[in-house]
Design a binder for these strands. Structure first.
Length: 672
DNA sequence: GAGCACTGC
């Protein structure tokens, strides 16, 4: 560890973790758990490797916070930021939010005296040391952050050199950059009024498999290996690639997903001898309501084996105690994006070596374990070392908008660790121009582009918000965009689908799904208000809402998330000075506003009853879950175009085709 | 007439 602290000025340390096992100084239990399971998980976490909690204290004691400097630690997940901060404060015997704090969306538990700050994201100019944890996960945010940090570090060392060599100290980077001939000076490189530029030290913590990549990216930074605490896990491969019934089972797994596999497992168990039937099965995946998720933490009855069927939520996000055996089919469902068609899809691809190690590592958290890989060892060696970074397989519009807002004009020239495809960048620039966020010269427009970049939303959603005041429906658009930004609001358990459909009927609107979402939101608010009249205790009201959600097959967690997003975005638009007006029940205005902002996502009915997405020309269908999939209007706008079994439009609303050239002439004037 | 990787602002 000392070698890290001794890293040269402006240096980078790459903290390596052994075996691809992530720093486990984080409790990844599912939110809101107050169960025994959570306690077990925390206890487990305490026993394991606490790099992300010990290192900042070490740096603090080493004087890195002298003179008001702050150590920032980024985490890819909110739970991790909160729990690690809490734990460090606890260990230091101090109140959270004082010396140690955290800052995440919807919650800022820091103060002027905070010196060790955990966070999920943010611009980190005021920090002297930045530790980026879990860098191997390569989220879009991590990648953008690394690019920015590299830029900041370069600029700061340049600034410091200039400061030493020049008798005229300006304290303003843009003045210096002119002298140095640096072509751009992003706004985030300019120090705040009166602020000093500290040389920046970076410590990138990642799994060992890709430490070299980080080291090279940061100009040959020193790599320090830290041994993780982990019990041995036996890895067992198949002799041959799996076929026959195993393969059939796999196909079932891949096609029908967890719910069906669970039924299959239960059915098979019934056919076993009685003495072997002592098995319980539980499932866990992200869109499952929290109450059901909690079941995986319950200990099995005595003498019973527990079989957990999990998506890759169990790879990193959730740590389930007591796992001895892991079965790894060797595949993963991963997001893919085609810039050409604008189509997002979930495809089944082989895992990377890092993911395979991550999965097997789950068997060795509390004692020695075994991992069965359903593929031969030779296949393992052919796997890619690490997963393709997300930035190479997602729509870039919102990232590009953010970079533009930071003053980075040359997106194609930006020093990404892995450069996104040129086509993908071009596509997003075109989209932003069509939305009016960028000028024809690719500059951030004023005020539209600037306002859009301030909203933490998909650019099309931001555009809808900004336009809504003019259509007298900002209240309705805030609700819509909030509901569209969260995981599925509707919960449809396989065995109660018909019941669920009946429950949803009371919200449904024949004009489209956007209004249906507004109806759900309004109904829930109305219910809460009524509940408040009868009941003053917050806990009881929350309980009532939970029950209401259960009865209506609404995912309570998603709904609450939407409420949080709603109040956050509402705050933003009020700060911008937009009038929060409402069209009441006049949904014509609202649908016209949808047409004016979602015009890139318009589709026309074809003679054969299918639809043509106007932007890409793609043949698509309205998703059967849509409230208007049966009515087949001539022209619709949609929220997203996804490829599953077929290309589908999800969240669809009927519009008048003549509205498009009227409300988006810049895009539809030339077309007919 | 379907199918539900995972995060995050």
């Amino acid at each position: 560890m000392p070698s890290m602290a001794n890293a040269s000025e402006g240096g980078v340390g790459v903290g390596q973790k052994s075996n691809g096992v992530p720093s486990s100084a984080k409790n990844r239990s599912v939110e809101q758990s107050q169960s025994l399971a959570r306690k077990a998980s925390i206890a487990q976490q305490r026993r394991s490797l606490p790099i992300a909690s010990e290192l900042p204290q070490f740096l603090f004691n080493g004087g890195f916070c002298d003179g008001g400097k702050v150590i920032g630690i980024t985490q890819p997940r909110r739970v991790a930021a909160v729990t690690v901060a809490k734990r460090v404060a606890e260990e230091c015997g101090i109140e959270l939010g004082q010396k140690v704090g955290y800052s995440i969306r919807f919650e800022d538990v820091t103060s002027r005296s905070t010196r060790i700050k955990y966070m999920t994201d943010g611009l980190l100019l005021r920090y002297s040391v930045i530790l980026v944890d879990e860098a191997h996960e390569r989220t879009v945010h991590t990648d953008v952050l690394l690019g920015l940090l590299k830029d900041v570090q370069r600029a700061r060392s340049k600034y410091n050199t200039t400061q030493n060599n020049s008798d005229k100290v300006n304290g303003n980077y843009s003045a210096v950059s002119g002298k140095e001939g640096i072509t751009h000076c992003p706004s985030y490189l300019k120090p705040c009024q009166g602020a000093k530029f500290f040389p920046l030290k970076l410590i990138i913590m990642s799994a060992s498999l890709d430490a070299r990549g980080f080291s090279e990216y940061f100009g040959g930074a020193r790599a320090v290996h830290i041994q993780g605490r982990q019990y041995p896990v036996d890895i067992l491969y198949t002799y041959d690639p799996v076929r026959d019934y195993l393969n059939a089972a796999l196909i079932t797994i891949l096609q029908e997903e967890i719910e069906s596999v669970e039924r299959l497992v239960r059915e098979r168990i019934r056919h076993l001898p009685l003495s072997s039937q002592n098995v319980v099965t539980v499932s866990i995946y992200s869109s499952l309501p929290s109450e059901q998720q909690m079941k995986v933490f319950r200990p099995p009855p005595p003498g019973c084996r527990k079989v957990i069927l999990a998506t890759n939520i169990a790879e990193t996000s959730v740590t389930i105690p007591g796992i001895k055996y892991v079965i790894d089919p060797g595949v993963v469902k991963a997001r893919d994006y085609s810039a050409k068609t604008g189509l997002e899809s979930l495809v089944i691809v082989p895992t990377s070596k890092a993911q395979a190690l991550q999965r097997s590592g789950r068997a060795g958290r509390e004692g020695p374990g075994k991992c069965f890989r359903l593929y031969p060892e030779s296949v393992f060696f052919e796997l890619k070392d690490s997963t393709l970074p997300e930035i190479k397989r997602c729509n870039l519009s919102s990232i590009v908008l953010q970079l533009k807002a930071l003053g980075i004009d040359d997106i194609i020239g930006f020093d990404f660790m892995d450069k996104p495809d040129r086509d993908s960048i071009k596509k997003s620039l075109e989209q932003l121009i069509a939305l009016g966020a960028l000028t024809d010269e690719y500059k951030l427009s004023d005020p539209v582009g600037q306002q859009m970049s301030r909203l933490p939303l998909d650019p099309i959603h931001s555009k809808a918000i900004i336009l809504a005041t003019q259509y007298n429906c900002l209240e309705e658009m805030l609700i819509t965009v909030s509901m569209l930004s969260v995981e599925s609001i509707f919960y449809s358990p396989h065995d109660k689908l018909e019941e669920a459909k009946v429950a949803w009927k009371r919200f449904s609107c024949l004009e489209g799904d956007h209004i249906t979402l507004i109806n759900v939101y309004r109904a829930s608010v109305e219910f809460i208000e009524k509940s408040k009249i009868k009941e003053s205790r917050v806990k009881a009201i929350e309980g009532n809402l939970k029950k209401w959600c259960r009865e209506n097959f609404i995912n309570n967690r998603s709904l609450r998330h939407a409420q949080d997003v709603h109040s956050q975005i509402r705050g933003h638009v009020q700060q911008m000075g937009l009038t929060v007006n409402s069209c009441g029940d006049d949904m014509l205005q609202f649908r016209r506003c949808l047409a004016a902002s979602f015009f890139l996502n318009a589709a026309l009915k074809q003679p054969d009853g299918s639809y043509r997405a106007m932007e890409s020309g793609q043949r698509v269908q309205i998703h059967p879950s849509s409230m208007i999939s049966g009515t087949k209007p001539d022209c619709v706008i949609y929220n997203e175009l996804v490829q599953t079994n077929r290309p589908y439009l999800r969240y669809v609303t009927r519009i008048d085709p003549l509205w498009l050239p009227e409300l988006a002439p810049q895009y539809y004037a030339a077309q007919t």
